[in-house]
């Protein structure tokens, strides 16, 4: 699914001042020429660190993102929806895997990244700390959350770090069905019984603002943006993407008879874009701090899975060792 710019208010930009100026200049020239940087290439330490943070946050988001949707696999309303949801959540696991692999090429291990996630040190997209209460939430997540994610991810296919860009190509290709299946769920609900329509509107009401938060803080409060843009780690600003998302999504809601929960939402003829209300940034920062409604549940689920799986991973390792030793002994 996706990565959020989670810069808190106090985050300072990573400075590149200690690097060898000639190497840095050559590096920046390559990036400016839209060349890919590969694992063995020289890169500024700040670039490596920013990438590790961004890619691992992205990977964590995929993994934690399995939980809110996984919550409905056993309760999907029919066999078709059950299979689609399973395939989608499975894709998230795959995407997490591709991204962890991409991050590993920068010299960090998956165990280290997992440890950072479980200890609460590493962040993941704020959106997954909201609960999925009804089946319509599965529709809303696909439509809005994956919609926002795709908007952010498509430009990342041309991000400067080769392994990340290639992982994104694969992810974008696979995700093409995720948003559509979500919108299809919402379409069915919105055209269904009164109870279903109410369920759909309620889900849109709850997921709209958190979806806008997914693009991260406003540009003037996003300290890393300028350097990340120059290094082609980020290709559009948070506010640009947010505007684009509103412009695309508002008519989609209208088309199925749902109303966006924002009284200030209005088409602005002169700007050729929608005006929309203020995001509650205090809520966003609180969720980034780990105060989201189900943050503890999400963390507990990941910790439990990891701890309960420890003996399995250990058994596989020991078994492989036994077999390898037996092979050596036989030779």
């Amino acid at each position: 699914m996706y990565t959020t710019d989670l810069s808190g208010k106090k985050a300072k930009p990573e400075a590149a001042i200690t690097e060898n100026p000639a190497k840095l200049a050559a590096f920046e020239a390559r990036v400016a020429a839209d060349e890919f940087i590969e694992p063995k290439d020289w890169m500024p330490e700040a670039y490596r660190k920013t990438l590790i943070r961004q890619i691992s946050q992205h990977a964590h988001s995929e993994i934690v993102g399995m939980l809110p949707e996984g919550n409905w696999i056993t309760r999907a309303p029919n066999l078709r929806r059950k299979a689609i949801l399973l395939a989608k959540v499975q894709d998230e696991a795959g995407h997490g895997l591709y991204l962890y692999c991409a991050a590993e090429t920068l010299g960090v291990s998956r165990d280290e990244m997992t440890e950072a996630l479980l200890s609460g040190k590493a962040k993941y997209s704020t959106i997954f700390n909201y609960p999925t209460l009804t089946w319509a939430d599965i529709g809303a997540i696909g439509w809005l959350v994956d919609g926002a994610a795709i908007m952010n991810q498509v430009p990342l296919q041309r991000t400067s770090y080769g392994p990340y860009a290639r992982a994104m190509v694969r992810i974008c290709k696979e995700e093409s069905f995720h948003q559509r299946q979500g919108y299809e769920i919402m379409m069915h609900l919105a055209a269904g019984t009164d109870a279903q329509k109410r369920m759909a509107q309620d889900a849109l009401d709850r997921w709209w603002w958190p979806s806008l938060m997914m693009f991260g803080p406003p540009d003037d409060k996003s300290p890393n943006t300028e350097q990340s843009m120059r290094w082609r780690i980020k290709r559009d600003t948070n506010d640009e993407l947010r505007q684009k998302f509103v412009d695309i999504t508002a008519p989609q809601a209208e088309a199925i008879g749902l109303s966006v929960p924002d009284p200030a939402l209005k088409w602005n003829e002169t700007r050729g874009a929608y005006d929309f209300g203020d995001v509650d940034w205090e809520e966003f920062y609180a969720v980034v701090r780990g105060e989201g409604p189900v943050a503890k549940e999400r963390n507990q689920a990941r910790v439990k899975a990891w701890e309960n799986g420890a003996w399995v991973r250990e058994a596989a390792r020991v078994h492989a060792e036994k077999r390898a030793n037996a092979k050596i002994a036989a030779e």
């Binding site: 399995m66 939980l67 059950k82 395939a87 696991a93 899975a305 799986g309 399995v312």
Partner: peptide
Amino acid sequence: GEWCGHAPALEVDLSLS
């Protein structure tokens, strides 16, 4: 399906699903 998201390793999650 109950396992999805809770398997001992990411790779196993993919297998079970």
